[in-house]
Each structure stands twice: as C-alpha cells, then as structure tokens.
Nucleic acid binder design. Structure first.
Lengths: 159, 159
DNA sequence: ACTCCTTGTGTGATGTTGTTACGTTGCGAT
DNA sequence: ATCGCAACGTAACAACATCACACAAGGAGT
C-alpha cells in the first residue's frame, strides 16, 4: 500500500546528484527546459532535504553574489511543481523536492513541525475513497494532497 | 464510510442560526467564551458558506462602520479554530465554518477552485492507513488534513 | 470594596509570502 | 534578418500574518 519513507540520514551528495540526473531525463522527455536557474533551485531543495520557503531558496540563490527577486524563484518553483519535481506544502507555505518523481497523483506528506523534514508517500487507498466521495457529491476532482503534521523520529528523540 | 457533503443550495438563514446556537452550546460546555466579536466572525463565515480570507472577514466586520485591524480577526479565527468551529484551508490561506463540529480528527475537504465552496467529509479509512504509515516510519502523528481541489457541481455546469 | 490575576480588546508597526506589470534577452524557425 | 516565443530581470505592490504594548472587563480571594 505505502512505502514508508526514510527520515534516516543517508548519502546526500549521491542522492542529490542522482535526483538531478533523473530530473534532466524527465524534462528532456517532457520537452521542458531545465535551465541552469531552475536546476539550481531544484538542487537547493534537494540539498536541504526538507521544506524551504521561497525566500529561503531566494537567499541561497543570492549567496552566489547575484541579486535576486522573488519573481525569479517563484517562476522556477512553478516550473518544477508543474513538472512534478517539487511539491508545495501548503501548510508551511514551503516547497520540497519530490522523492518519487515517477509516481501518480495524490501524495501524502508527513511533515515534522520542528525541523520541517518531509517524508512523502503514496496512499492509494485514499485516492479510491476520495474518488467515490467526489462522485457521490458531483464534484469534479482534479487534485488531492494529504498533509500530516507531527514529529519526525529525530526530533522526537531529541525532545 | 463518509457522508457526502452537500454543495447544494439550502435554507441559509436557518442553517446559520442553528449553527450559531450549536456553537454557543459547545463553547459553554468547553468553558470557552463565545464573545460577540467571535460570534460575529463565525456568523460571517457561516453566511458565506465558503472559504473566506482573513481580510475578507475583516472587511465585512468593517461594514458595520467600526475600524478593525487584522489582529482582531486572526485572534477570533484562532479561537474558533481551537474550538473546532472553523477550519483553515491551507491551500487557500482561507477559513471555512465547520459543518460537522462534533466529529473527530482528520477531516477531508473538497474545495472548488472557482467559487471556493468547501464540502467537508470524514474519511476514516485514511486515518487508519496513515496511522500505519506513521508507525512504520517512527513518525509521531499529531494531525492530518486532506485537501482536494476541483470543480463543485455548480461551477461545473456553469462551465 | 480592593487588589490581583486572567482573558479579551484596541492600535500601530512590521514581517512574510506571493503577484503584477513591463521590458529585455536568447534562440530556433521561417 | 526578423519574427515569435520562452525565459529572465527589475521594480513595485498586494495579500497574508504577527508582534509589542497598552487598556478594559470580570472573577477569586482577601
């Protein structure tokens, strides 16, 4: 039903690099252009491995000495979200790199309220129940997201 | 499993009045004070019967000629959310009066992207699946919300 | 009645998040 | 070469949310 998603630490450099390569493939296939700027934004999200606000991304982009306006970041984020490479966590007004870019719609997120780490899973059962509910009430369902809040294993043991 | 929630039109005056009375009972039982201001905010949300931004509520409060600051509205909304009389729809940064104040945790919302009407349901199956997922990954689950987007029956036929 | 304490309110300033509008650049296709 | 389109740069602004601090109302204990 659902693969539990690791909050555990792991080889970041490797996972970032792999994800970037996968993203390049995906964009090429979709005929979308993963420009240096967009790529950099994705990289920033992948490196942090947790949800970042747009303005956090902004300031990290700025680190390179370039002056950057919000628009730029939002455009890049919109693109990445449209490609399914990034998700927006509405609860936090923040963005997180997708850890399973191939899978279908209806993601579920476990969001740590302390460190903003985000684990992503797919709850197929939910999709079904919701489809049924929508059908009963005549609602044309286009999109669903489940956001759960709590403490990740790390912050839990720290507390 | 889930009672589908009506998008259909119905007797507003009546449903608003009933809901206000129910809210008064609930607050009395909880030892919480539903002051005129808080009551008025709830009434505004109930009347509109869709998700309103804090500043929309603000301007309707202002209609009465009183000058009102955001703080006031946010305080009232925080109170109402804490009492479970109002939900925040994170996706919209907006608030909606709860249509089933007695029920448990883990609400699901069908949000119309056109008119912001919101139907609320309870998906018990989801809660179970999520509990399991959280347990597997060592996550201390505290709270979950499902937000779905699409078109309500009204906007659907209008389109 | 008087003080103390808690809870709610009034007000201004400020911080954060997200968008609009408009002009420029780079690059491929006719 | 020039047209058209997508991406980018820049500035201003709008929408959403919080902070800090002062005041008012009402109950509890003396």
């Amino acid at each position: 039903m659902a693969t539990p998603l690791a909050f555990e630490p792991h080889d970041h450099a490797g996972c970032v690099a792999d994800a970037l390569i996968a993203a390049e493939h995906r964009c090429r296939e979709a005929g979308a252009r993963l420009t240096p700027q967009r790529r950099r934004v994705l990289e920033i999200l992948l490196e942090s491995h947790r949800a970042l606000g747009a303005y956090e991304v902004l300031s990290r982009l700025g680190d390179q000495g370039r002056s950057v306006q919000p628009t730029i970041v939002y455009r890049a984020l919109d693109f990445l979200v449209a490609q399914g490479l990034v998700h927006k966590i509405a609860r936090l007004s923040a963005f997180v790199a997708c850890t399973r870019p191939k899978s279908g719609h209806g993601p579920a997120f476990l969001v740590c309220r302390e460190c903003r780490a985000v684990a992503e899973a797919q709850l197929d059962a939910v999709q079904g129940a919701l489809d049924m509910l929508a059908k009963e009430s005549g609602f044309a369902l286009e999109l669903m997201v489940l956001e759960a809040e709590g403490l990740c294993p790390g912050c839990r043991s720290a507390a």
